[in-house]
């Protein structure tokens, strides 16, 4: 289960990146545009919503709780410095998927309590895509966190994130993790569509 998180490079805009992911067969995308204005976010988001309808994909937006209904997004992802999940739930109601970022088992447990619907857990390794990273987890970190999740009978999908490449996926999926979030690995590939095909084969 792969979530693609939008990203841009010299060759590709945010929207290009999402279009590539959907063309490649990814069914779950997150629009993340950290430094964009609300206007830009709305304009790109409207187009992403249209593309996701066309491809039958799930559409999550990063951070912008106030734009979820406007964009008819399926959900919102909240990072460590974004609005608390419990508050977003109060505003958005029960029909919206809310994802939360976690670095430890304690983060996962508290997001679960706060009614999160999935967790992005990481970083797997050091990455240049995101600033202000928490300590890296590696395979051992995931194994230990997922063991605790299981023992606590917390039934929430946990997606690994942070510096993951196609080759890492089989190992990570062995740890009890439910899916993988990717961004940089796809766009940095020489041929992003081929890279997506490789990734979807590994998942």
């Amino acid at each position: 289960m792969i979530q693609f998180i939008s990203h841009f490079t010299e060759q590709h805009t945010y929207l290009d990146s999402i279009r590539l992911a959907l063309e490649g067969g990814i069914k779950w995308v997150q629009l993340r545009m950290k430094e964009a204005s609300e206007e830009e976010f709305l304009s790109v988001g409207t187009e992403v919503r249209r593309l996701c309808n066309q491809y039958g994909a799930t559409f999550i937006i990063d951070d912008h709780v106030e734009l979820v209904h406007k964009l008819k997004a399926d959900g919102v992802h909240l990072g460590k410095n974004d609005m608390p999940i419990i508050e977003a739930r109060r505003i958005l109601g029960n029909n919206v998927i809310i994802g939360g970022t976690a670095n430890t088992f304690e983060d996962i447990a508290s997001h679960y309590q706060a009614t999160a619907n999935y967790i992005g857990c990481g970083p797997f390794r050091f990455t240049t895509t995101k600033k202000g990273l928490s300590p890296t987890l590696g395979l051992e970190g995931y194994r230990s966190i997922m063991q605790k999740v299981k023992e606590a009978a917390i039934d929430i999908p946990v997606v690994a994130i942070g510096g993951i490449t196609a080759e890492d996926i089989p190992g990570i999926m062995q740890t009890g993790i439910s899916g993988i979030a990717l961004s940089g690995a796809i766009l940095r590939a020489e041929n992003p569509i081929e890279e997506i095909n490789r990734i979807l084969k590994y998942e």
């Binding site: 069914k27 779950w28 039958g56 399926d74 959900g75 029960n94 998927i97 439910s178 899916g179």
Partner: peptide
């Protein structure tokens, strides 16, 4: 499962509602 706001994967592959 609700009509909206749900994503499902079988054997790790996301399956669109139409399928």
């Amino acid at each position: 499962l609700p009509e909206k706001g749900v994503a499902v994967a079988i054997e790790n592959k996301m399956v669109p509602r139409t399928l």
